[in-house]
Structures are given as C-alpha cells and as structure tokens.
C-alpha cells in the first residue's frame, strides 16, 4: 500500500502534557501501522473552538482558521488537511466553506492575513481523521492489520456532536451514524446495538461554565452505555472523551450512581488491536483505566 500523506492540524489538546495528549499518542501508533504520514502544519494556531465566538466574533475567528489553511497551503500544497479534534475540524472546514461562499469574507480574510504576509485560497479539502480511515483506508484494510482482536469487549460507540453535525461523515445519517460501531466490529469487539445516546451532547465547552447542566447530560450518556451492556465507551472527540471520563466521580456523588466506565478513543482501540503496547496506545493516559485493553496489550 502506498504511503498516504496529509497536512495535519493537531490542535491544542493534542500537545504534550495537554488534555488529549493520549489521543495523539494513539493516533501516531495507528498511523504507523496504516502507513499514514501526517505532515504537521508549521506554527499552527488554535481554531477558537466552539466557544471563541463570543469575544472573537466572525472575522477574527475565521481568520484564525484561515491562518492555518494559509500555512498549510505553503508547507503542504495539494494535501488534504486532516484534524483529529472535532472542533478543530469543524472550525477549519466551516472557514473553508464560508470563504468560498462569500467573496467579501474571502477578501476581508485575506486583508487580515496580509498583516502577517499570508494569503489563503482555502482550496484544500478539510477532513476528520475518521474520514481518512473510512474513505481512504477502508474497513477491510483496517481489519487486515488486526493482530489481537478485542474479543469479548462490548463497546458503546459515542459519536457525539461535532464529528457528526453539521458536516458529518459522508454516507452516514445524523441521527444514527454507524461508522464507530463498524470500527469496533472491525477491531474484533462487540458494539452496543442501538446505543441510545450515540449522538447526544456532553455539554461541550459548557461543561466548564454550566457544570451541573452538562453533568446531567453526561450522566445520561453513561447510563445508556451501561444499559446497553457496555464495558467501555469509545469516541472520536477529545472534548467528549474528557467530559464523559473525568466527571464520573462528581456525577456519582450527586446522583448516587456508581459509574466507573473507561472512555477511550477509536485510535486507542485500533492501536491495541494492532499489537501496540499500553504506552503506545495511550492507555496510561486514561483516568479510568481500561483493564480489558491493558490485559490485551500486555499479552
């Protein structure tokens, strides 16, 4: 298989010692096996996520993503831009579409970028890593590399919001996307059928500013996973991962529940199934340890 190359936008949470650093670790291990080369956009900046709008407004916010696209065009011309974080992907793709939709926004954005000697065409595709896996690699190829099938593990595929809406993965429905379940199956594990909270919101950034309201949503997401018989939850989004994982003690205290369910990334599952060790799969980055995956990784 020919090596596939992409212009990579890692995002703030993926950095060393940041909240999603274990996601990046597992993505690197997964890409190593699948012969995917990620060419990081030099000097990339934050996309303003889904909460930057209030102070940032429209143009300054779009300019942030446009700067990344401009740097990507310079350094990695002709390559698709790929992000692993849902918010990074959404903001960058939205910027690309907005600039092409409006001549005046394109002009104004380039005026702003010119202040740093940059210009943007926004002509590269902007994709989520999941799209690369599903569309460019394919389930069959992904399955071929499985050395240690994740047998006997039942997993709730929590797709969440921003990997799913407003853009979503081509060919999937907004209400019941199947790709995470198919991925779980491809790795030899068993997906939870009809996971009721598959595309429900975890509160996103409002988990910080409105903790009680958000934790009520998170409680339902976890409860539905348990109801489906899940041993763990898998997600493609670093905010989903963090929100669903780290507040379980607070939720237990408030709702008298006994939640202790690991929340992993698709890349974690793939790295373990591909024979990587616990560290390479980012398993040491889980606050709630995934014992079943640790056992397989140690085999």
């Amino acid at each position: 298989m020919a090596k596939k190359e992409y212009s990579f936008y890692p995002g703030c949470s993926s950095q060393k010692l940041a909240s999603g650093s274990n996601y990046q670790t597992a993505v690197d291990s997964m890409c190593d096996v699948l012969d995917i080369k990620l060419n990081t956009i030099p000097d990339w900046n934050c996309c303003a996520a889904s909460i930057g709008y209030a102070e940032g407004g429209e143009l300054p916010r779009l300019a942030l993503s446009a700067r990344n696209l401009a740097l990507s065009e310079q350094a990695n011309p002709g390559q698709d831009v790929v992000a692993t974080c849902a918010a990074c992907w959404l903001a960058t793709r939205e910027t690309k579409e907005r600039l092409h939709h409006s001549d005046s926004l394109m002009k104004e954005t380039n005026e702003a970028l010119a202040a740093a000697g940059l210009k943007v065409k926004a002509d590269q595709n902007v994709r989520h890593m999941v799209e690369v896996l599903v569309e460019d690699i394919g389930y069959e190829e992904m399955g071929k590399h499985v050395k240690k099938p994740l047998e006997g593990i039942k997993i709730a595929g929590y797709v969440g919001c921003q990997t799913n809406r407003p853009f979503g993965i081509s060919g999937e429905s907004f209400e019941n996307p199947k790709y995470l379940d198919k991925l779980v199956e491809t790795m030899g594990a068993q997906p939870v059928d009809n996971y009721d909270k598959k595309v429900s919101c975890c509160g996103g950034a409002l988990a910080f500013s409105e903790p009680e309201k958000s934790q009520a949503l998170i409680k339902d997401i976890i409860e539905a996973a348990y109801d489906g018989g899940a041993d763990m939850i898998v997600t493609p989004c670093p905010v989903c991962q963090m929100n669903v994982e780290i507040y379980q003690n607070d939720i237990n205290a408030k709702y008298k529940t006994k939640f202790k369910i690991p929340v992993v990334y698709y890349s974690t599952l793939m790295s373990v199934a591909y024979g990587k060790n616990a560290k390479q799969a980012g398993l040491d980055g889980l606050v709630i340890q995934a014992k079943q995956l640790n056992d397989i990784a140690a085999k």
Partner: peptide, 27 residues
C-alpha cells in the same frame, strides 16, 4: 500526563505571535 503544572509559567504557543496578533487586530 494530561495536565502540566509548569504551563502556568509559559506553556504552548505559536512562534509568530506578532504575526498572529497583527492578523487578529486587522480582522
């Protein structure tokens, strides 16, 4: 290793901060 106390005294950032600030100011 998902939180770095030392980030309080620096932390991650872009190299071209002045360029970034100029873009945001103009925008």
């Amino acid at each position: 290793k998902r939180l770095n106390p030392m980030e309080y005294f620096g932390g991650h950032g872009v190299k071209d901060t002045s360029g970034l600030h100029a873009i945001l100011k103009k925008a």
